[in-house]
């Protein structure tokens, strides 16, 4: 008997091998097993035989959309800044996507970071990825030497212990509240699509914070970012952070100081989150990448929620829909505007 993920792995290898063999793609972006348990590494297969190293399981937490532009770029002939792009079609890349990654790619396409024609998208409906930190916590942070994954449980082994864990219990928070597990754009699908999910309290975590009073929220925010060491792993993991010079590194203008001063850290998180407003799909890569366990997803998810509430917008669902901050409606809500200067608006 094969598990679902094992079946998918077999399919992935087959598809990748075929694409590379036919020359339809010059590279295939997927995952391979890391050197320690519960760590999957993004992997680029460039030759047919590389396809055998591709793998799929519940630990594919890093967002492949983040690596895609780089892989595409690596296949282009080098050219000087003002040189026109070469004639003719450029080499293609095959890539695995789940719901959120595909939506990131939709954003990337809108923002000219990738060209749809150069990507062969292989869709997989996400069953939710596992939060390694949750597993670790369940075994009292003892060293884990092996994890065997079944469809609904994980068997975790370490020195002197074996533990069976219900898989859903350790799935990442963002995956638990995800209603779009199926890819929105794809060329081929592996496995079955779910047709979408229902989640009872999708923004329950945000609501909880909103229900606090203002000082409690400030307290929460302060504590949440207190441990931040400004390593920028969250930024680096994010498929939406692709500025050549990040605002945190820029000195002209210097919006944020480079120290780990608490104001600078706060400004970093505020601005990072705001840069993702209307773009972030809640893929959770940032949180998964964070070595300090900071839940910065709560910041971006708040903006996600507000975009939905104010403008009925969810990022990356439709390829022909403008991003919310690049468009407007005459009747957009403006109840936050001081009433004094109000005139003539029907509201």
């Amino acid at each position: 008997m094969f598990t679902i993920n094992e079946k998918i792995t077999v399919e992935i290898r087959k598809v990748a091998r075929d694409l590379l063999k036919k020359g339809e793609v010059s590279a295939f972006l997927g995952y391979t097993k890391g050197t320690v348990p519960m760590v999957m590494k993004p992997f680029v297969a460039r030759r047919q035989e590389d396809a055998e190293r591709l793998s799929w399981n519940s630990f594919c937490v890093l967002n492949l959309a983040n690596y895609l532009p780089l892989v595409l770029k690596s296949l282009e002939p080098p050219r000087r800044p003002n040189e026109p792009p070469p004639e003719g079609p450029l080499p293609k890349v095959g890539v695995l996507v789940t719901g959120c990654w595909s939506r990131n790619m939709v954003v990337q396409i809108k923002e000219n970071q990738i060209e749809r024609e150069r990507v062969k998208i292989i869709g997989i409906s996400s069953r939710g990825m596992v939060d390694r930190k949750k597993v670790q916590a369940l075994v009292d942070n003892n060293e884990i030497t092996e994890v065997i994954e079944e469809d609904h449980k994980l068997i975790v082994k370490g020195h002197g212990f074996t533990r069976e864990i219900n898989r859903w219990d350790v799935v990442r928070d963002n995956c638990k509240s995800c209603v779009h597990p199926d890819p929105v754009i794809y060329d081929e699908v592996i496995g079955d699509l779910s047709g979408g999910r229902q989640v009872p309290k999708r923004f329950g975590d945000i609501q909880e914070i909103e229900d606090m009073d203002i000082e409690e929220r400030w307290q929460w925010f302060q504590e949440e970012i207190l441990s931040c060491i400004r390593c920028y792993a969250c930024r680096n993991a994010c498929p939406l952070c692709y500025c050549p010079t990040c605002f945190v590194d820029d000195s002209r203008p210097q919006w944020v100081g480079k120290s780990i001063d608490k104001t600078d850290t706060a400004l970093f998180h505020i601005l990072r989150a705001f840069h993702c407003a209307g773009r972030c799909t809640d893929c959770g890569a940032c949180e998964s990448a964070c070595p300090m366990g900071i839940r910065m997803r709560l910041f971006t998810k708040k903006l996600y929620k507000d975009c939905m509430e104010l403008y009925g917008f969810e990022p990356g669902l439709k390829i022909d829909e403008p991003l919310p901050l690049t468009t407007f409606k005459l009747e957009d809500p403006q109840d936050y505007i001081l009433q004094q200067g109000q005139k003539g608006e029907e509201k």
Binding site: P81, E111, N112, Q113, T245, P322, L325, T326, T327
Partner: peptide
């Protein structure tokens, strides 16, 4: 151009269509 990502957000918000994306440089 050293900082520009070519994301074209500027071209969308410009009311005068004064900003465009250069085909060569992106």
């Amino acid at each position: 151009p050293m900082k520009c990502t070519g994301c074209a957000l500027c071209t969308l918000v410009c009311p005068y269509h004064a900003v465009g994306i250069d085909e060569n440089t992106g």
